[in-house]
Write a protein that binds this DNA or RNA. Sequence first.
DNA 1: CCCCCGATGTGTACGCTGTCCACAATGGCA
DNA 2: TGCCATTGTGGACAGCGTACACATCGGGGG
Lengths: 208, 208
Amino acid sequence: MTAQRNNYHHGDLREALIEAGIEMAREGGPDAVILREATRRSSVSPNAAYRHFADRQALLDAVAAAAQGMAADRMEEEVASVTSTGDQQADAREQLRATGAGYLAFAREQPGLFRTAFSVPHDMSEAMTADKAGQLGRAPFQILSETLDGLVSAGGLPAERRENAELPAWASVHGLGMLVIDGPLRGLTDDMVTAATARVLDMVDRGL
Amino acid sequence: MTAQRNNYHHGDLREALIEAGIEMAREGGPDAVILREATRRSSVSPNAAYRHFADRQALLDAVAAAAQGMAADRMEEEVASVTSTGDQQADAREQLRATGAGYLAFAREQPGLFRTAFSVPHDMSEAMTADKAGQLGRAPFQILSETLDGLVSAGGLPAERRENAELPAWASVHGLGMLVIDGPLRGLTDDMVTAATARVLDMVDRGL
DNA sequence: CCCCCGATGTGTACGCTGTCCACAATGGCA
DNA sequence: TGCCATTGTGGACAGCGTACACATCGGGGG
């Protein structure tokens, strides 16, 4: 589990610290990412971390980027599972739903990582940098963006409403995720969340 | 600013601590609510707080409830500013927009309090308790809920879609708030936020 | 081949936090 | 009047992030 070592030099401490951070974030969200604990799990003195990260926030940023990559993977998975119906427009709409469904699936399956990924300060200006990408090379925002492009091509969304369409789409899905995970809607049962998800996706589908 | 005192007993320490907490939350969100600092600002020893709150979380909960009350006030203000057009349904829809606009106005005007109010664990089961109400006695969720009822009465929303309509409405607006305040959309200019708000409210109006 | 230097990890220390324990002052009620 | 529950104090502890000085390594130039 925890990286051991025999040499004085660790080998790849930076990666080990991020890995430890991910594990902590998984269990307790961003607040649970403790710098000292990460060094402990990497069998290294507390200060060693400062050779790789300016401060705790820098480590947390790296963990968040990794978590966004995992979210991207989950979204890609959901998108890939959409079976074509022959109707190009219906498919495009189904794919948009899938991005949202994947996002929310990640939120439910990995609430700690979800919160870490998406509630830590990051500028939009760098929402599509490589470190946030999943294994297919696309960051979450990028997946959504390209899906919306596809929807326009397929005639499922008037071109004049394409601009900034990411915002309402993302916001509604993200909002449900946050409300359900650690907001006032925390108590909802799985069934209720599933229903709520469908409800939100319906609204986006209809209202975008 | 800070409450002074001459007596051994403070008088209303509980309220003073909450007040101090609100001020800290205003400036730095939930993480900035420091128990010791609150006691310092109330000219009291650190442990005095434990006579009124079980732990830091309990203080934070009280602050969050107060912040929700302020959000409610902002929403009420926005709703009240809607001028009647004579068309009952148009008015009802405008009022729904106003609840969302008020919510987001609060998010932009008081980001720290907004985050404190709505990202701290609270069960939905107690989303409408009195301590979260604004000066008109309604909690944020309650305002939304009753506004939706009004929309149904006015014929602006089919009754069969009323159930759980709070979820998509709240989620989309809340999501935008979170994304804009400390999420990946943090960098947006005021104009962009205004535009995004309108875009989201349009979607809700159309898609609910 | 060796040595030396930059990169990496260690040790010690500081101030801050939340929280526990035993003790002190107060003031309202019997 | 005297007592006792309520409220506030003092001291202590572990854990956190982080700064500064020092130790150890490994690879490249002489």
